[in-house]
């Protein structure tokens, strides 16, 4: 970073409306053109997550696809020690909770431009990054840090996609163990709830909020719909059709109305086709 330090005195950080600082990024030192990163301290009103502490997190926009979390970590450690790096497709709150999955089971990431949340050790690093001059670009691929792209990367990816069946089986087994445990806990909880709703010795029932009844499965939307339909069908079955003269007359009327409607529809269709000159045979 020697050359960039020299220029440091002469150039200023560039700040655009909206409070973002512009930072340049080059793939390698002999690249001709550069991407612009936009960074700002992470600031949200309602987020209490511990892994994005408000004072120490840097929010970075437009991270090119070849910057992996490791590369970003190294690149930004020039501003201070980096605790963690999180790259995401879109800005937003942190990951949804769920069982921890091994890398083989995670859905493939989109290899596009990312948004980064960089957590530093010290709050001072955030401001150091923000005051970095815009004409001293960060460099992704250097002598010390080779970043693989293209054919090299694909071969590496292909090689890494192999997993030994036994290892895979282990992962599966441990996950299923966890799953069974969770399942059991759930069942226990439900049992407990069910017990609570039983009459106690003196004949009292404890009424609680939450799912009613002892059914293990929650109500489903489909079941509701089905009952409604059943009712409707029942009603319909009771009706007599074409029994009275007026009913017969009505059916005939409906028929003519139907024909008329069809005629009108056809007419419109023809008008449409005519407008498109579709009747010229040649």
């Amino acid at each position: 970073m020697a050359p960039s330090k020299k220029k440091h005195a002469s150039s200023q950080p560039r700040i655009i409306p909206g409070g973002f600082t512009e930072l340049s990024l080059r793939f390698s030192s002999d690249s001709v053109s550069e991407h612009k990163l936009y960074l700002k301290e992470h600031k949200v009103r309602a987020e209490k997550s511990s892994h994005r502490p408000l004072d120490r997190t840097l929010f970075v926009l437009n991270m090119p696809p070849y910057c992996s979390e490791g590369v970003v970590k190294e690149m930004f450690s020039q501003f201070g020690c980096v605790r963690s790096v999180e790259l995401r497709d879109h800005p937003g709150s942190s990951k949804e909770s769920g069982p921890k999955l091994s890398r083989f089971f995670k859905p493939a990431d989109k290899q596009g431009f990312k948004v980064g949340y960089i957590v530093f050790q010290n709050p001072s690093s955030v401001s150091a990054a923000k005051s970095h001059p815009h004409d001293a670009p960060l460099v992704v691929c250097t002598e010390q840090r080779q970043v693989r792209t293209g054919a090299q990367k694909w071969i590496q990816q292909y090689t890494e996609s192999f997993s030994h069946p036994e290892k895979l089986q282990q992962i599966v087994d441990s996950f299923m163990e966890g799953y069974d445990k969770r399942k059991e806990e759930e069942a226990d909880r439900q049992k407990e709830e069910a017990e609570q709703q039983q009459e106690d010795e003196e004949g009292w029932v404890k009424v609680t909020r939450g799912p009613k009844g002892t059914k293990g499965r929650p109500h489903s939307e489909a079941a509701n719909k089905r009952t409604l339909q059943k009712e409707m069908r029942k009603k319909k079955r009771k009706e007599l059709l074409n029994f009275y003269t007026w009913q017969h007359r009505n059916t005939q009327k409906e028929h003519i109305a139907d024909l008329r409607k069809k005629f009108e529809e056809d007419k419109q269709r023809i008008a449409l086709l005519r407008a498109q000159r579709q009747f010229r045979p040649y």
Binding site: S31, V32, S33, H35, P65, Y66, T149, G150, A151, Q152
Partner: peptide, 14 residues
């Protein structure tokens, strides 16, 4: 310009 450069970077070797 950067996008065109990325085309080259991402397809290195190809």
């Amino acid at each position: 310009e950067a996008i065109l450069e990325d085309f080259r970077v991402m397809g290195k070797g190809l």
